[in-house]
Design a binder for these strands. Structure first.
Lengths: 221, 221
DNA sequence: CTATCATTCAATTATTCCATTGAATGACGA
DNA sequence: TCGTCATTCAATGGAATAATTGAATGATAG
């Protein structure tokens, strides 16, 4: 290792962390790992990527201190190293939302962010739930739901949304959430429900943010 | 541009932001810009880098929404685009401090972080200042001091620290701060003062963090 | 001990990023 | 209008990073 002054050496370390976050696939991996720990194979399957590719990206994330690994039999389970990883992700997302016009364009174009797409905040949701005014649905796959979900939520994976909608209580508003603030599944769930004439809105954030806020989490028995 | 789904498109945008933070030189540029706006030339001089190189990195930072440019005559002044940039930087620093053993090693090795190097916190400083128990010195160059400093601080650029120490009030503890939590100048100032037998400690954070916390800032007349 | 399977490593090619150089742009002052 | 100066652009070669493939490792089950 070359001799440098400590300032540069520190900046190099910080840059390693930022660089680890600087790839779209790795960010997607982080969002999945934020739902709970995963084996390399499971993660690869979720993302539709070759195992070796995911393994390499996991090494990069590990070098940056983003994830930690734990061996369990012949599986290695990866998970986020620290809650501070989520705040770093959130901070980067915040910069992008505030500063990059492209983000705004994507959100408006693809997600069709109309005024009435205004998401429900955490406090607002808790008030609505207390008053029994909403049906809260968790549109993530069943395995992620099982690892932890908002108390009172029903698991309705995205592909079952149309079938489920028939049994929905038309008198209540539906609130959907999934993996994070920009997770597409809740957008699509809301769009699908609305096209069926149901009143639906997104929860502003997803499961990891709910958990990070210290709010109660329910797990499968 | 290829057609992708919105999720990937968003992750790509977030990755652009993270990638912009993923280079040591750019992080150093951010720390300088956090002191105040700078022209390309001024920044290049501060960092001892060719102008064209700095210009290119500034473009990268601009693409990532990290900095914004403002033309003034034939100069272009760059500054941080948003206070959220500082929190993103802080979040990344936080991950590095918590997770990367190398950071710990550098801090211990170069900065000689002994127990009594424990830095002074903001509240503690304010209490000490109120009671007149400390001399607060700002060890940044005079131009950065002029753009804003902690009220009551004396500007003692690092290279003048030995000359100044003769006139220091030996009955008071000295607290030094500079550009940020890991800015080397305050470490070196404290080391120099201690080797002269004076009681000196670092302020935990630097000017940008002080400003971001909404605390009062004094600028040159 | 051997077979199996999850994971990692190694090697390849394509792509992107980086620093440097020199030329182009764009605004100001004479 | 012309020269000057700050900044940006374009082009170069060299280094790092990414995706793919196939082989190596390391732990479990039989």
């Amino acid at each position: 290792m070359s001799i440098r002054n400590p300032k540069q050496a520190l900046y190099e370390q910080f840059a390693i962390v930022a660089k680890a976050l600087g790839h779209p696939l790795r960010l997607e991996m982080i969002e999945h790992l934020a739902q709970g720990s995963r084996s390399v194979e499971a993660l690869a399957a979720k993302l539709g990527q070759p195992v070796a590719n995911i393994s390499q990206h996991l090494q990069a994330l590990r070098r940056g201190g983003i994830v930690s690994a734990e061996r369990d039999g012949k599986f290695v389970h990866y998970s986020l190293a620290d809650a501070s990883v989520l705040s770093a992700f959130a901070a980067i997302r915040g910069v992008a939302e505030r500063q990059l016009a492209e983000v705004d364009r994507i959100v408006r174009g693809y997600f069709d962010a109309r005024d009435d797409m205004r998401p429900v905040g955490r406090e607002e949701l808790q008030a609505l739930m207390r008053d029994g005014l909403v049906t809260l649905i968790d549109v993530r796959p069943a395995d992620e739901f099982a690892l932890g979900h908002v108390p009172g939520a029903i698991n309705v994976p995205l592909r079952e949304i149309n079938a489920w909608s028939g049994s929905a209580d038309a008198g209540k508003q539906i609130v959907a959430y999934c993996r994070g603030p920009w997770c597409v599944m809740s957008f699509e769930a809301v769009a699908a429900l609305r096209s069926l004439g149901l009143a639906a809105r997104r929860l502003e954030e997803g499961m990891p943010e709910w958990r990070a806020a210290g709010l109660p989490v329910e797990a499968a028995a």
